[in-house]
Design a binder for these strands. Structure first.
Lengths: 263, 263
DNA sequence: AATCTTATTTCGCATTATGAAACGTTCAAG
DNA sequence: CTTGAACGTTTCATAATGCGAAATAAGATT
């Protein structure tokens, strides 16, 4: 387990150069949709002919297709198939999904399941509300720093102070709204509040206009990894609803807990 | 140096060799989950050290991680993020999603949105029912041949006979259940039935135990590309429900149509 | 302690990817 | 009907890159 990295560990570069280029192109296309070759080449900083080869390879494998109308390149659904096959194998998601669905039903708002990875949290599942025109944009796989999310606080509330400090220290603290917590003392205080109330709150600390409420889940004895949350536009999130939703969240938390502990 | 490659064989190979290896590894991991290096190497037919480099590169980019517990490699959520960013950009999905959600509500069963690509249909969105323990397994990105799916029939019913024949001819007809239609005449007859009834049915023709009912959608004048469907285990799908669901489907179809035509 | 298994690193070699430049379209302006 | 600008595609000499047999390291099992 004790793996010694080379003392000088000079280079820390991708062992396969083209790999970075392939995925760079794919990511660009995923974020920008249809793109012409020249534009793509300029944006991923590659020679046009290299870009062409990269994109031709992706097309050969079916991850990209060239729109016959305008010659531009666009991502296909093949990648979605790959991603969803990964998701299918994750038991956690399969087990918790029905509970999320129920939670969404109860509150009529979009709910998320997240996992902590290092000092970040990742959305690993979501159930969208319907009928609401104003909705928070999010997608499975989206990451955000733990220190300015309700889910992050919910998880941190179960950690020792050392752990919390460790995570805080390796985070880049960045103010994204006027309400972002940027001070360690304030953060610790917020955690106390979480422990006291039994749920965590994010009052537009991450994204202006979005309030979030979350609880940590206890998955096989680990309550520092998974959490679920309800995300709501401020306009629809008064204190009454916060109260109600926190109750729903805890109901669901208990249900999940009992289901998970009966092997 | 000298290119003494066979002059006979028309070159139809991946322009970037490693690309195939990278995605091959990723696909294997997506389908099989945690895999040791040796096992992975054996299955994707690569030298162990090549596999190691490939997997190290994927790890470097964050698409794969090595489980510290057992040293095995597993896919991460990064790919899901990539895939979902692609999905977010697809207006079709965003527009139709609420209607699917409503449809699911009405019938309490899992509903799908599909797109035809050549002689196949691809799931491009789904809304899962909840509370049902018996459910069909499916995932966004999954493909199936058009000729043995309800959605395929719904789309084919709007095509000229030439088009239908063209698609049929370039399909590999394969019987997957005792009810699969393998005869072209029978298929044409089924299409007549679709046109007559106003909806398409798949009576365990693709997957034993699953019935499917579908209608084509009219998206900007094209009614040969998108369709939506309800998939239900036979045990829960009697003629009464079929009747009822076909009504729901047509309601939703009309609603989508009017929304889409008020561009 | 010995043996097996599995992950990791090494390193000389040639296959493979590279990119400047040339090529062929398309399309709109002159 | 030109001209030329903009774009995707192809070519090809070059060397950098990825290759993989074999050696090594680190656990696990006996």
């Amino acid at each position: 387990m004790r793996q010694h990295r080379g003392a000088i560990m000079a280079e820390n570069k991708n062992p396969i150069q083209v790999a970075g280029r392939l995925f760079g192109a794919l990511e660009y296309l995923a974020d920008h949709g249809q793109t012409g070759l020249t534009e793509l080449a300029a944006n991923i900083h590659l020679n046009k002919s290299t870009t062409h080869r990269v994109v031709a390879s992706l097309e050969y494998m079916g991850y990209v297709r060239q729109n016959p109308e305008n010659g531009k390149y666009e991502p296909t659904f093949k990648l979605a198939g790959l991603a969803n096959r990964i998701m299918e194998r994750m038991d956690i998601i399969q087990t918790i999904r029905p509970h999320l669905q129920k939670l969404m039903e109860m509150c009529g708002e979009t709910v998320h399941l997240v996992k902590r990875e290092g000092a970040e949290v990742v959305y690993i599942d979501k159930v969208e509300s319907y009928g609401n025109n104003v909705r928070m944009v999010s997608y499975v796989g989206k990451r955000m720093p733990f220190y300015r999310s309700a889910v992050g606080k919910a998880l941190a509330a179960n950690m020792s102070e050392e752990e919390v400090r460790g995570l805080w220290n390796c985070s880049v603290i960045e103010r994204t709204t006027p309400y972002t917590i940027t001070n360690y003392e304030d953060f610790l205080e917020a955690l106390d509040d979480v422990r006291h109330k039994g749920y965590a709150l994010d009052n537009e600390e991450n994204e202006q206009g979005v309030r979030c409420i979350a609880v940590a889940l206890d998955v096989s004895g680990d309550n520092k990894t998974y959490a679920c949350s309800i995300s709501v536009p401020v306009s629809r999130m008064d204190n009454d609803r916060i109260k109600k939703f926190s109750g729903y969240l805890n109901e669901v938390r208990v249900e999940i807990n009992t289901e998970m502990s009966r092997g």
